[in-house]
């Protein structure tokens, strides 16, 4: 129920931002359109439930930390990729590496994919469900084990508390 109201409010916010007006009529209209969309689409918009660690409040509390960590990664990665593009660092060993899925749930895989792909230097390529690996393309894959350790550390430190 709470989830549904929050989703309707989010869709209403999107409507209002698109119109860029805070007219009360538009606010009501946005909420109505959002609610109608939710009713029409039913369960299709909601992701499958997963076993959550931690309460909803602790997950919400850790969410900004996760966003901050991702933004930091984006800045560092942009700097690195920019230097590589401008011939200041070598691009001689890019490549595809395997990263074990580990404890990630389906949604955790999705969030990991989004976070790693958003930060430059790594692109999420494919999930290998048979061997339980994620395939990532790195612009610097000269030390695959170090990259694996770095990604695992990011997951343990920031993501596990929000999207396990």
């Amino acid at each position: 129920m709470i989830r549904g109201v929050a989703a309707a409010a989010g869709l209403g916010l999107l409507y209002v931002l698109t119109l860029a007006s805070t007219d009360p009529v538009d606010l009501v209209m946005g909420t109505v359109v959002g609610g109608a969309l939710l009713l029409a689409l039913g369960n299709r918009l909601r992701p499958a439930r997963t076993s959550d660690v931690g309460t909803i409040t602790s997950r919400i509390a850790w969410f900004p930390v996760l966003i901050g960590a991702i933004l930091f990664d984006v800045l560092v990665g942009t700097w690195d990729v920019a230097l590589r593009v401008l011939h200041l660092r070598p691009v001689d060993r890019p490549g595809i590496i395997r990263v074990p899925i580990g404890a990630r749930s389906e949604r955790g895989i999705a969030v990991s994919a989004l976070a790693t792909t958003l930060s430059p230097g790594s692109v999420f390529v494919e999930v290998d469900h048979e061997r339980g690996d994620l395939l990532l393309h790195l612009i610097d894959a000269s030390d695959p084990d170090a990259s694996r350790a770095r990604l695992q550390r990011f997951y343990d430190r920031y993501q596990r508390r929000v999207f396990p």
Partner: peptide, 15 residues
């Protein structure tokens, strides 16, 4: 990847 495009860097890593 699925269409098998090759990586064109000489010593690219492919696990």
């Amino acid at each position: 990847y699925r269409r098998g495009e090759r990586m064109r860097t000489p010593n690219a890593v492919n696990e």
